[in-house]
Amino acid sequence: MDRTCGRSNLDKSQTKVEIRIRRFNPQLEQAPYDSVYILNFYDGMTLHEALDYIYKTLDPTIAFRPYKCDKGICLSCVVSVNGNKQRACTTFVNPGDCLLVEPSDDKYVVRDLVTIL
């Protein structure tokens, strides 16, 4: 499976970021697909904030885990970012970034980025 975001149309100097979310509802759908969101970048933006912003203002249909423990220990928000498992709360987004965000474990997907431990 493609683990990168591919070539982005975004210029590094731009103030936008591209978040590509791998979507899948195993109970209904045959195969995953991607939804792409373009966000305005601001200084210090994290992936957790980006997901929260997408959910609240762009697309309320995405499934992700909004809980955050403010210590980095609960691991509720762990996702795969361009193929690397990491916490969304401490993943920084840089201007011009193009991030492919997938569930942390393909085997236990409930829907989109939500998995069962």
Partner: peptide, 11 residues
């Protein structure tokens, strides 16, 4: 109003 999704619909 929420999207008509049944599985893990945060809305």
């Amino acid at each position: 109003t929420i999207p008509p999704i049944r599985v893990f619909n945060l809305q």
